[in-house]
Amino acid sequence: MPYLVSFHLGWLIGSVLLGFCMGWISVVQRGNGTSKVTARWLAALAAALVAASFAHVVPGRFGYWLDLGLIMFACYLVGCTIGAWLRDRVVARSMRAG
């Protein structure tokens, strides 16, 4: 894990930034987003991929790509969370001020 992080640091920072932007937008975006059922399916898919990664069942280069994808995805989620939370604070403050 530390090796993967240090080797792909640039790409991971990119993922975090992408996530940050997406999170920032998501707070004020109108619309319904994904349905609960779809979200559950997506979560289950993610969990299955993480399990496959930890169990080392995917061989060779595909295994490496899976690990890389998951770690980028994790960074994206972290970026999204931070972005959404900060935007939420900003929105709340402006509403109080308004």
Binding site: L18, M72, Y76
Partner: peptide, 30 residues
């Protein structure tokens, strides 16, 4: 958080593109 998260999926498309580039660029060096 769940409400926000339901709107994060569009970012997965550029993320997938980035992933593809990262894999393309880094496999041989790794």
């Amino acid at each position: 958080l769940f409400r926000w998260a339901s709107k994060w999926w569009p970012g997965l498309i550029p993320l997938a593109v980035m992933w593809g580039f990262a894999a393309w660029n880094n496999t041989l060096p790794v």
